[in-house]
Design a protein around this nucleic acid. Structure first.
Lengths: 227, 227
DNA sequence: AGTAACCGTTACCTCAAGTAACACTTACCG
DNA sequence: CGGTAAGTGTTACTTGAGGTAACGGTTACT
C-alpha cells in the first residue's frame, strides 16, 4: 500500500524523457550491431554493442520482438523523413512519382543491412502475432491510401480502390527494390524511372478511363498532400 | 518391384524413389501440422503429426530450414499448377491478366495458413542465407520476366525493363493479396478486378508510348507463353 | 532519513533445435 | 546361407539464445 494518492510524486515523472532517450540509444546500438555482425545479431551482441549486459536491455524492452519493433519504427521514421519532402514537393506528377520512388530506393540503398534486418530478419521465433514490418508497410500504405482516395474523390471517381491500390503500390516498389538491392544489375535512376513509368501509366490509364486527361508534365497539385 | 538391375549395387539405388516419397510425406505432415497448430509449429510437432520421432525427420531434412524450404517448394508447385492454365489460356489480354491474378488469390484464399507459414514464418532462427520465400518469388518473377521480355521484343521495344517489371508485378500482387487476406474487406473478384485494371493500364500505357495500340478485348496471343 | 525510481552485475532457468548411441528390419550380393 | 548397405525407429542427451532472479549501488525527491 505504498501507493499514497498524494500529489504526482515527481520521482515518477522525473525519468519520463530519460527512458525514451535510453530506448533510442539501444535502438541505435542495435543498428550498429547489425551493421557490424550482420542481420542475425542476438540480444547479447546488442547488449555488448551498447556496453551493457542483457538484463539492462530487458528493462527497456519486454522482448526481442519489442526491440526489433522499435528498430523497425526508427527505420520507418528515417524512410518517412526522406519521403515526406518528395510527397510534398511540387513539380509535374510524373516527376513527383519518380522522386518518391527514388527517395525510397535511396534509403534502402544507404542502409542495406538495416533494411534487410527489418524486412527479412523479422521476429526470430515469436510467431506471427506481432509482425514487425507489417506495421510499417501498413503505415505507409495507409498514408498513400489517403492521398489516392483524396485524388479519386477530387475527380469524382470511385474511391473504393484506394486501399488496394496503395497496398499494391507499396508491394510493387518494395519488392522491386528488394530485388534490385540483391542483384544490382541496373542503376538506381534507371529503376526509379521504370517504376515511375509503370505507376504513371497505371494512373493515367485509370483517369483516362474516367474521361480525365492529364499531361504528365502538368505541375497540377489540386490537394494538399500532407497535413 | 522386380527392380532387378545388374548395375553396380542395386542396394544403393533401391531407395532412390522411396526417399523422395518419404520427404513428400513429411512435407504433407508439416502442412497438416501447420493447419492444426498454427504457423509456429516446431519440429516435435511435425514429427508427432507424421507419427514419428524427431531424428527420423532429420534423416530426410538436414535442417529446419531445409524442411521449410521443401514446404515452400510444394506451395509453389500448387501455385504454379493453378496459374499455369491461366497463363496459357486464351481470351482477351485484359481477361487473361485478371484470370492470372485471380488464380493467385484463389490459392492463397484456400490455403491461408500454409500461405502465411511460407511467406511470413520463414526461417525461424537461421539467418538470411537461405531465404525460403525469396526462391519462390524469384521463380515466379523469372517466369514472368521471360514472358514480358518476349512480348516487348515482339513489339521491338526495349526489353531491359522486363525484369524490374516482373518483380514489381509479383510484389504488387503479393502484397495486395497479403493485405486482402488479413482484412477481407472486399470480394476476391473485386480485388482481382482492381489489380488487373492497374496492370492493364500500365501495360497499355507502355505500349501506347511506343506507338502500339491494343484493344483490351483483343484475343491477341502472338507468343506461346509456356513451353 | 527514507524511499522510489533508475543503474548495473553474475548466475541461473527454459525451451526448441539438433545429435549420439543403440537396436531392429529388409533385401541385395556373393 | 553369412555379410552388409540401406532404411526403420527409439530414448536421452547437448547446445545456444532468449529470458529471469537475486543481488547491490546511485541519485534526488519528500
Amino acid at each position: 500500500m505504498a501507493r499514497t494518492v498524494k500529489g504526482p510524486d515527481a520521482r515518477r515523472e522525473r525519468w519520463k524523457g530519460h527512458r525514451e532517450q535510453r530506448r533510442a540509444e539501444f535502438v541505435d546500438a542495435t543498428i550498429a550491431a547489425v551493421a557490424k555482425k550482420g542481420p542475425d545479431v542476438g540480444m547479447d551482441d546488442v547488449a555488448a554493442e551498447a556496453g551493457v549486459s542483457k538484463p539492462v536491455l530487458y528493462r527497456h524492452f519486454t522482448d526481442k520482438a519489442d526491440l526489433y519493433l522499435a528498430v523497425g519504427q526508427k527505420a520507418t521514421e528515417v524512410l518517412m523523413d526522406r519521403m515526406g519532402p518528395a510527397l510534398a514537393a511540387d513539380g509535374s506528377i510524373r516527376d513527383r512519382i519518380e522522386r518518391i520512388v527514388d527517395a525510397y530506393l535511396s534509403v534502402i540503398e544507404e542502409n542495406p543491412n538495416l533494411y534487410r534486418f527489418v524486412v527479412k530478419g523479422s521476429f526470430a521465433d515469436r510467431p506471427v502475432e506481432k509482425d514487425v514490418v507489417a506495421e510499417d508497410k501498413n503505415l505507409i500504405a495507409a498514408t498513400l491510401a489517403r492521398i489516392i482516395g483524396d485524388y479519386l474523390r477530387a475527380f469524382d471517381m470511385d474511391s473504393g480502390g484506394a486501399e488496394p491500390w496503395a497496398h499494391a503500390l507499396v508491394g510493387m516498389v518494395q519488392n522491386a527494390g528488394d530485388w534490385w538491392l540483391d542483384r544490382q544489375t541496373m542503376s538506381r535512376a534507371n529503376l526509379s524511372d521504370y517504376l515511375a513509368t509503370i505507376i504513371w501509366h497505371a494512373l493515367d490509364g485509370l483517369l483516362r478511363s474516367a474521361g480525365v486527361e492529364i499531361d504528365p508534365a502538368t505541375p497540377l497539385t489540386p490537394l494538399r498532400l500532407v497535413d
